[in-house]
Design a binder for these strands. Structure first.
Lengths: 360, 360
DNA sequence: GTGAAAGCGCTAACAT
DNA sequence: ATGTTAGCGCTTTCAC
């Protein structure tokens, strides 16, 4: 069997011998323990660099139980939202000398379980779950300690878990209000799967906005988070005599799927129908689409998720859960602003930034 | 300090006691060692499941030096090519009970070094480098053993490294030939950075094809792999009196950037100019673009990279390097087929599959 | 076929 | 301030 890539590394014993001290002293120096005389410390330090010694995280993990390994659970790394989140998580983790393992659960509890089984005994320190679905209890039970888990992107149920999510409801409501203000009345919302809190919250925001206008006609279709989902909704709605003048997708990927389906039947965005997404993934900023969307501040969210987790890991076992909600920001672009209904189309393609009612 | 998520897990000693045997026997059963009597094995097995025992990979790693941890190095996880590759790598690794850590090097040697420093002593078993640039020697030196590294996507220099890459030269050549056959003569190639072998090979393939036609006029501009790169080339070429009738991008992302830039100046694809990409990332299959591209069989590549690495890890220390080249496949779609020059535009949007001269 | 015991490289009491 | 020693949970000779 192969051996890990530790090289033929010098051990703490080698350093101790070289410096003429005991291993505990070396260990103290390595861990910046104060109880070491300055000259001893220097002697050990030079022995360390002379031998090129680096402590073995494996041995360290065995005794300390700390691996500096985090897991990031996402439903599907191929969904453009997640690589962006992963990058910010990784960057922040790296700053604190942690390493991140990314796992795609496909929103299936069984896969969460399988991953965790391996990872747990691999000895990871904590988990960031960006796609909690029906696997929440499984996860928390397997981890045992809820302080070692932080949820992001989707809210967990119950009140004792750490999380950082966007204010999806406010974002969706404000977006819908905008469309109503521009004269839309029959608006179709392509919703996401109900097991995802962000999908439920966005739907709720949409419905809340529609309820505020007397003659508004909300249409709702279900979809998943992938780009195929939107096509079915289009089939269903666009053949009807009274079709919606605006469509809102659960996320940007689905929005592109809808756009594609509309294109296929000769319906042009935004002149024939307005279209908006959600998330603000980089791609939708392309002037090829100029898609109106609700920006989630993905980088912020990932960074903060790491910070919350590390704070909990370092804190006392009985610390209160940390729960944060980030405001979203509407990016009004041509896919809705170019719609020729009421109001003056701005014609240009520059986004107009509108902070969505920050509740927190 | 926090302890890793090992739970209050039963140890091998617990199992031994429960089964009334020694720890060595339990260890043998766990590792499927043959020298155990059937009934003993059964007794141990039931003790294991009764207690829910799972061996600790950390302790195991300490003694065996094997961590079942692999690293996947990519230049930038936000580039849509890489999540797709990562997924196939992860899936195959999972099948063999390995865990993958993804690292973005940003094509900077210093970042490769920093990652590796941490990972090496974290004790990883091997590395898949999908974005080798000027960091090849650094990487191999730090790892020590070249058998623990497999390069993919980009070819390494020298002849002693494992790799699996696409036949980029043939793919680019065949694509260019297609465009020439359809009547294009002035063709612009937006090249990638020269430190990347796949970029060099694609450029070589383009030039080789252009050299075979007497009145062909190759244009070359340099870019990086991101979508911004293409815009500059467009600025440069499209203002000139004799502008190219077709453009080939180093990859699909750059192709979209070019498309955007063309759009901005009112040049329509494919009627005013044909456009093609490279890679075959899922996005370009969208009927919104219908982008002609050269499909790289990304999933295959990732899967095989893992297989090569694991084979080397299990094999003898003096094994020969494993080197494979995968054929590519041209996907002819509307972004080139819709060009109205010579030849009959097929008008439709269905891809025509053309295997690119498989050299291997 | 099975068990006892010596580590793997480190940390953390507990001495001194 | 520094050294000694007992593990962390497992694998692996080496006896029996």
């Amino acid at each position: 069997m192969s051996r890990a890539l530790t090289g033929r590394a010098p051990t703490i014993v080698d350093v101790a011998r070289h410096a003429g001290v005991s291993v505990s002293t070396v260990s103290r120096v390595v861990r910046d323990h104060p109880d070491v005389r300055a000259d001893t410390r220097d002697r050990v330090r030079s022995a360390i660099s002379a031998l090129g010694y680096r402590p073995s995280p494996i041995a360290r993990a065995l005794v300390s139980g700390q691996t500096r390994l985090l897991a990031l659970l996402v439903s599907d790394i191929a969904n453009p939202f997640y690589p962006q989140l992963a990058k910010s998580v990784e960057d922040e983790a790296k700053r604190h000398n942690y390493t991140v393992i990314i796992c795609s659960t496909n929103d299936r509890t069984a896969e969460t379980r399988r991953y965790l089984q391996r990872l747990l005994r691999q000895g990871l320190d904590g988990v960031i779950h960006a796609s909690v679905a029906r696997d929440q209890d499984t996860l928390v039970n397997m981890i045992g300690d809820p302080r070692r888990v932080v949820f992001t992107n989707r809210r967990p149920t119950g009140s004792s878990a750490n999380y950082i999510v966007s204010d999806n409801r406010a974002g969706a409501k404000d977006l819908t209000m905008r469309l109503l203000a521009r004269g839309h009345r029959r608006i179709g919302f392509v919703a996401g799967p109900p097991y995802a809190s962000n999908a439920r919250d966005r739907l709720a925001g949409f419905l809340a906005a529609m309820a505020e206008v007397a003659d508004a006609e909300p249409l709702v279709a279900e979809s998943d988070f992938s780009s195929d989902g939107g096509a079915r909704a289009v089939d269903q709605w666009m053949d009807a005599p009274a079709r919606p003048t605006a469509l809102i997708a659960i996320n940007d990927s689905v929005a592109l799927g809808i756009w594609e389906a509309l294109n296929d039947r000769g319906i042009h965005v935004p002149t024939d129908a307005a279209l908006a997404g959600f998330d603000g993934v980089r791609l939708t900023a392309s002037r090829l689409f100029d898609l109106t969307t609700v920006d989630q501040h993905i980088d912020q969210m990932g960074k903060r998720a790491v910070q919350i987790l590390l704070r909990q890991l370092a804190g006392p076992p009985d610390a209160d859960p940390i729960q944060q909600v980030l405001p979203t920001q509407i990016l009004l672009r041509n896919s809705t602003e170019g719609w020729p209904g009421q109001g003056a189309p701005n014609g240009g393609s520059h986004a107009r930034l509108v902070p969505a009612d920050p509740k927190v």
